[in-house]
Amino acid sequence: NITNLCPFDEVFNATRFASVYAWNRKRISNCVADYSVLYNLAPFFTFKCYGVSPTKLNDLCFTNVYADSFVIRGDEVRQIAPGQTGNIADYNYKLPDDFTGCVIAWNSNKLDSKVSGNYNYLYRLFRKSNLKPFERDISTEIYQAGNKPCNGVAGFNCYFPLRSYSFRPTYGVGHQPYRVVVLSFELLHAPATVCGPKKST
């Protein structure tokens, strides 16, 4: 009989979030998941669920729940959905087409922007091929755009693959930082360890 609440607040209220290319994953298990708490945590810009209804979450049980978190800019949030393409979905964080879970995003301009520009958040701009779903690539190998090998040196047709967002508070919403948490629900042929409040007794 599990009584402890799932530590969603640790994920959502973390002081620092990860850069999207090096997104963070927390496995959540053996706890009571009260998803209604999430609705009250922040004024969400996005709370979209796929393959599951957000209002039914509190009635369900899962084997595992994974919470992935990272920062992107406002106009990239739409890429965090099944079947999307674009720089983020292709080279940084890719959801599977049959994704079961929820994408939660909110504006973090007050936390993640600086007047002089916050350069701490990076994204991958160049990659030889698209990522597979939930693949994480943290390599910093020089990207070869031409025929000549780069031998690890940046220059003509040889690019450092990561680029930094420079978040400034005066930017338009599309270029402001957004914190994203992706909850993916895993149903294996194994005992369910993460249940809503109704199912945990």
Rank of each mutant, 00 (worst) to 15 (best):
F134G: 14
G83W: 08
C61Y: 08
A67E: 05
F62Q: 07
N147M: 07
K199P: 12
A89V: 06
N92Y: 01
Y171G: 00
F45L: 15
R168K: 04
R163F: 15
F8L: 13
Q79Y: 05
R179D: 00
A89G: 05
N147P: 11
D68F: 04
A42C: 07
T140Q: 07
S166K: 06
K128I: 08
T140F: 09
K114F: 07
F126S: 03
P133A: 10
S129E: 14
L57H: 09
V65N: 03
T170C: 03
V37C: 10
F126K: 04
F47L: 15
E10G: 09
A14P: 06
H175I: 01
P82Y: 02
N130W: 08
C31T: 06
N92H: 03
S53Q: 15
I72C: 07
V52C: 10
I80L: 07
T100P: 01
D90E: 08
T3R: 12
G117L: 03
R25L: 02
F126Y: 03
V173S: 10
D75T: 07
R27N: 12
K48Y: 06
G172S: 01
S139E: 09
F99P: 01
N109K: 07
T15A: 12
N147T: 07
K132T: 11
V180M: 07
Y50P: 00
Y21D: 01
N64Q: 13
F160T: 12
L95Y: 02
C49M: 04
D98M: 09
Y21K: 01
P149K: 12
L131S: 02
F160A: 13
D75L: 08
D90T: 09
N30T: 09
S113C: 03
T15Q: 12
P169C: 03
C150N: 01
A42P: 15
W23C: 02
K199D: 12
P96K: 06
K198W: 12
P54E: 14
E135P: 03
N151S: 11
S200A: 13
N120A: 13
P191Q: 14
Y159Q: 00
E186W: 11
D97T: 13
E76F: 03
G101P: 00
R73K: 11
H189A: 15
F12Q: 05
T100D: 06
N1K: 12
E141C: 08
H175T: 01
K26A: 09
N107A: 05
S139K: 09
V115N: 10
V103S: 01
R179F: 00
V153H: 14
P54T: 12
D98K: 11
I2M: 13
L122V: 11
C31G: 05
A18D: 08
V52R: 06
D137E: 04
